[in-house]
Amino acid sequence: MRTFYEFFAGGGMARAGFGDKWDCLFANDFDPKKASSYVSNWGSADMVCSDVAKLTTEDLPSNADVAWASFPCQDLSLAGAGAGLKGERSGTFWPFWNLMLSLKDEGRAPKVVVLENVCGALTSHDGKDFSEICSALSSAGYKFGALVIDAVHFVPQSRPRLFIIGVEQKVNIAPDLTMQNPNPAWHSPALIKAYEKVPSPIKSQWIWWNLPNPPLREINFSDLIEENPNNVSWHSRIETEKILGMMNNLHREKVRRVQDLGVLKVGTIYKRTRPDGYGGRVQRAEVRFDEIAGCLRTPSGGSSRQLIMVVEGENIRTRLLSPREAARLMGLSDDYCLPEKYNDAYHLAGDGVAVPVVRFLAEHIVEKLVPSRLSTTDRAA
Rank of each mutant, 00 (worst) to 15 (best):
Ser303Trp: 11
Glu291Phe: 08
Ile269Tyr: 04
Glu253Ala: 13
Ile269Pro: 02
Phe154Val: 07
Ser236Gln: 10
Ala285Glu: 07
Glu196Phe: 04
Lys193Ile: 00
Val311His: 05
Pro356Asn: 02
Lys33Gly: 09
Phe18Gly: 02
Thr240Tyr: 07
Gln259Trp: 11
Val66Cys: 10
Asp51Met: 08
Val152Tyr: 09
Asp351Cys: 12
Gly127Phe: 10
Glu227Asn: 14
Glu363Lys: 12
Lys104Gly: 12
Ile269Glu: 01
Ala326Lys: 04
Tyr278Thr: 14
Gly331Arg: 04
Pro160Trp: 10
Lys33Leu: 06
Gly166Cys: 09
Thr3Val: 08
Trp94Ser: 07
Asn230Cys: 11
Leu307His: 15
Trp97Cys: 01
Cys295His: 11
Gly350Leu: 09
Ala83Met: 12
Pro215Thr: 02
Leu332Cys: 08
Leu211Ser: 07
Asp51Tyr: 06
Ile207Thr: 03
Glu253His: 13
Asp351Phe: 02
Val39Thr: 15
Leu78Pro: 12
Glu340Asn: 10
Ile219Gln: 14
Cys119Arg: 08
Tyr336His: 09
Arg161Trp: 00
Ile238Gln: 15
Ala69Gly: 15
Tyr278Lys: 15
His347Ser: 15
Val39Ile: 15
Pro160Ala: 06
Pro275Ile: 09
Arg108His: 01
Trp234Asp: 12
Val287Pro: 06
Asn117Phe: 08
Leu99Lys: 10
Asn210Leu: 00
Asp129Asn: 09
Asn230Val: 05
Leu78His: 14
Glu132Cys: 03
Ser375Ile: 02
Tyr342Met: 03
Ala151Thr: 07
Ala27His: 06
Ser158Pro: 00
Pro32Gln: 07
Gln180Pro: 02
Asp378Trp: 04
Leu99Phe: 02
Pro95Val: 13
His235Cys: 12
Asp65Glu: 13
Asp59Lys: 13
Ile149Trp: 06
Val152Ala: 14
Gly262Thr: 00
Cys295Leu: 04
Asn220Asp: 15
Arg161Met: 00
Ser236His: 13
Gln306Ile: 11
Leu25Phe: 02
Ser139His: 12
Val167Gly: 03
Pro299His: 11
Val263Glu: 14
Asp176Trp: 05
Ala27Arg: 02
Val255Asp: 11
Glu367Gly: 04
Phe289Thr: 00
Pro95Ala: 01
Leu361Asn: 07
Thr56Trp: 11
Glu367Asp: 15
Gly19Phe: 02
Asn315Ser: 14
Gly10Ala: 06
Leu369Val: 03
Arg15Gln: 13
Val66Lys: 01
Arg328Pro: 07
Lys54Gln: 15
Asp334Lys: 08
Ala53His: 05
Tyr278Asp: 10
Ala140Lys: 06
Ser375Met: 03
Ser222Val: 10
Met309Tyr: 06
Ser222Gly: 08
Lys54Ser: 15
Glu363Ser: 07
Asp59Val: 03
Gly279Ala: 10
Asn220Phe: 12
